[in-house]
């Protein structure tokens, strides 16, 4: 009798364990829907640079390390440059690879700008590395990236066509 009862308990626990599997699958689907995988930024960057080499440095971004909500994240962008007629920042493009439209914004400066600096607020769809690429007056490109953890993504329940 004892042996049969033991088998029953084991069977019950196995069945219970199996019942959990589809539930787990659902959770994974839901996550996949809300958080798109990072997109390959190479086509965007190549279009910007025309295939030129992008060096790392000079570009920094200030954001909170963790954002509870992806809808409005304070964002400060700075590019190190003397901002003279010969040596200044022309433009900076900001990319969020996990956003449905990775190009967040482009900022245009010129020699008249005292500093290549701008503050704004951005929407981010999930934890990712935000990348900014600066185009300099001498034709060189510089990039910087900043990781951010986003616990609730900006609204994109569904990607509509």
């Amino acid at each position: 009798m004892a042996g049969v009862e033991g088998a029953g308990v084991r069977r019950r626990s196995v069945l219970r364990a199996m019942a959990v599997i589809p539930a787990l699958a659902n959770i994974r689907n839901a996550t996949a829907q809300n958080f798109l995988p990072p997109q390959d930024l190479r086509p965007f960057i190549d279009k910007l640079t025309g295939g030129a080499v992008v060096k790392t440095g000079k570009v920094t971004m200030d954001m909170p390390a963790i954002a509870e909500n992806g809808n409005s994240i304070p964002f400060i962008l700075r590019v190190a440059s003397p901002m003279t007629a010969a040596d200044h920042v022309k433009s900076v493009h900001v990319f969020a690879p996990r956003n449905p439209r990775p190009l967040v914004a482009a900022f245009h400066f010129g020699p008249h700008a005292p500093r290549a600096e701008v503050s704004t607020r951005v929407r981010l769809a999930g934890t990712q590395k935000v990348i900014a690429i600066a185009a300099m007056a001498d034709g060189s490109f510089w990039s910087g990236e900043t990781p951010i953890v986003v616990t609730a993504a900006a609204c994109l329940d569904e990607a509509l066509g």
Binding site: A96, F107, H108, F109, G110, A113, S119, T120, R121, V122
Partner: peptide
């Protein structure tokens, strides 16, 4: 003279805020 220009997309928050330096 134009001192600053920004192209924005859907990645910028509602009620956009922009701050930039001018000499």
């Amino acid at each position: 003279s134009e001192v600053f220009r920004a192209e924005l997309g859907s990645g910028v928050s509602a009620n956009p805020y922009l701050a930039f330096p001018v000499r």
